Amino acid sequence: MDKIRKPKNIFVQGAISPDKIAHSIANHSSKTDIGGHSIFLGQIRADQKEGGNVIGIEYTAYEEMALEKAFEIREAIFAKYPLTCMHIYHSLGEVKTGELCLFVFTSSKHRKAAMDACDELVERIKTELPIWGKEILDTDAHVWKVNT
């Protein structure tokens, strides 16, 4: 019988804490059918812009649509790769430079599936989810971020 998956809330208010990441990793030590994990951590850069230096990003989202799309992406990735589990966390609100705003964690019996799934998942999150970042500059100005 297939496991029924339900949409999960991927959003975290503010930065994603190192404790949350460590706890997520530690929770997998009892799962002895996993042979490999792949982790992506997105961090806010202190980019220099024409109007000033980036000191943070304020994330907003069309939450209901983003959660539905994240669920679709999640299901497609589970169908494509033999994963044991997958976790996605994305920040909403303000995240300062140096802090983490995206945590993607995939696990599988063998490393290649975990690595390939993680890479594809990150690309799809960045291009398909209705999440916007407003870069906050040290000059009190802001610039809407364009994902690349």
Rank of each mutant, 00 (worst) to 15 (best):
G36D: 05
G36T: 14
H37I: 14
H37S: 10
S38F: 00
F40E: 00
G42N: 08
Q43C: 09
I44Y: 00
I44H: 01
R45G: 03
R45I: 05
A46N: 11
A46C: 11
D47A: 14
D47L: 07
D47R: 07
D47Q: 08
Q48G: 10
K49F: 10
K49Q: 14
K49G: 02
E50Y: 07
E50Q: 12
E50I: 11
G51E: 09
G52E: 01
G52T: 08
G52I: 09
N53I: 03
N53T: 11
N53C: 07
V54Q: 05
V54S: 06
I55D: 01
I55V: 15
G56P: 04
G56L: 06
I57V: 15
I57G: 00
Y59P: 02
T60R: 09
T60P: 03
Y62E: 09
Y62G: 08
E64N: 13
M65N: 08
M65S: 07
E68M: 12
E68A: 13
K69I: 15
K69Q: 14
K69F: 09
K69N: 11
A70M: 10
E72G: 11
E72A: 15
E72L: 14
E72Y: 12
I73H: 04
E75V: 07
A76W: 08
A76R: 14
I77H: 03
I77R: 00
F78D: 00
A79N: 12
A79H: 10
K80G: 07
Y81R: 04
Y81S: 00
P82I: 06
L83D: 01
T84D: 11
T84C: 09
M86E: 10
I88H: 01
I88V: 15
I88C: 07
Y89R: 15
Y89F: 12
Y89I: 13
H90L: 14
S91F: 03
S91M: 04
L92N: 09
L92S: 06
G93V: 07
G93A: 05
E94T: 15
V95Q: 05
V95P: 02
T97Q: 05
T97D: 03
G98K: 04
E99S: 04
L100Q: 07
C101Y: 01
L102W: 07
L102R: 03
F105Q: 00
T106I: 14
T106M: 09
K109E: 15
K109N: 13
H110G: 12
H110S: 12
H110L: 13
R111T: 10
K112I: 12
K112T: 14
A113H: 09
A113N: 07
A114V: 08
A114H: 05
A114R: 04
M115K: 05
D116K: 03
D116E: 13
A117F: 03
A117M: 05
L121R: 02
V122M: 03
E123Q: 15
R124D: 08
T127H: 13
E128F: 11
E128H: 12
E128M: 14
L129Q: 01
L129Y: 06
P130R: 10
P130K: 07
I131V: 15
I131Y: 03
I131Q: 01
I131E: 02
W132H: 05
W132C: 01
G133T: 00
G133D: 02
K134I: 10
E135I: 10
I136N: 02
L137N: 06
L137K: 06
T139L: 02
D140E: 13
D140N: 15
A141S: 15
A141V: 13
H142L: 02
H142E: 10
V143M: 06
V143D: 06
W144H: 02
W144R: 04
W144P: 02
W144I: 04
V146S: 08
